[in-house]
């Protein structure tokens, strides 16, 4: 699958919309003005980027922590490399998994390759999600851990550098 090139205008659109649409009656017209194109072109480009998957979704981005999801566990799994992709797709499809990624292992310190984020309003709910993933993986679970976040030290939206000051 080839993705069309990401040009400077797309880049400016991503930056402008990532920070949030303004809460004015015609927000796209406002973003278009910032980017330097007209509203119709902006909407067309947003549709295209959403169509080819570069934009996952456009909508309200809730702050799960503020909504009471205080138990955010990063679960990490050591799974057989040959099965990692199939297992990743299965885990990523679970409704309570918000992100699921494959990452490299760094033995001996870090044997885990499959990362899945789970969330709960209490610790037991989050741990029940971990158990459900373990059941799904069965014998392919060669070892896992759950790392709960104890403090958010920094959290900002996507930063793109170049072309806009800092």
């Amino acid at each position: 699958m080839t993705t069309p090139p990401f040009d400077e205008i797309d880049r400016r659109i991503v930056l402008a919309t990532q920070e949030g649409l303004p809460l004015v009656p015609a927000p796209y017209a406002e973003v278009a003005r910032q980017v330097g194109i007209d509203e119709a072109e902006l909407l067309e480009r947003l549709r295209r980027m959403q169509g080819d998957g570069r934009i996952r979704r456009i909508g309200a981005v809730p702050n799960h922590y503020a909504l009471g999801y205080r138990f955010n566990g990063m679960t990490v799994w050591d799974v057989p490399d040959a099965r990692a992709r199939a297992l990743g797709r299965a885990v990523g499809a679970l409704p309570f998994v918000s992100h699921c990624y494959l990452r490299p292992r760094h033995p001996p310190d870090w044997p885990y390759t499959l990362f899945a984020m789970v969330h709960g309003r209490d610790r037991d709910t989050a741990l029940a999600h971990v158990e459900a993933i373990a059941r799904l993986l069965g014998a392919d679970d060669l070892g896992h851990q759950v790392l709960f976040s104890s403090r958010i030290l920094k959290k900002t939206g996507l930063r793109l550098s170049g072309g806009h000051g800092a």
Binding site: V14, G20, G59, P62
Partner: peptide, 17 residues
């Protein structure tokens, strides 16, 4: 109130960097 961080686009990783 901090309930939503924004209304905006969620971009696929590595799209712009």
């Amino acid at each position: 109130a901090g309930i939503i961080s924004r209304v905006g686009a969620v971009v696929r990783p590595h799209t712009a960097g």
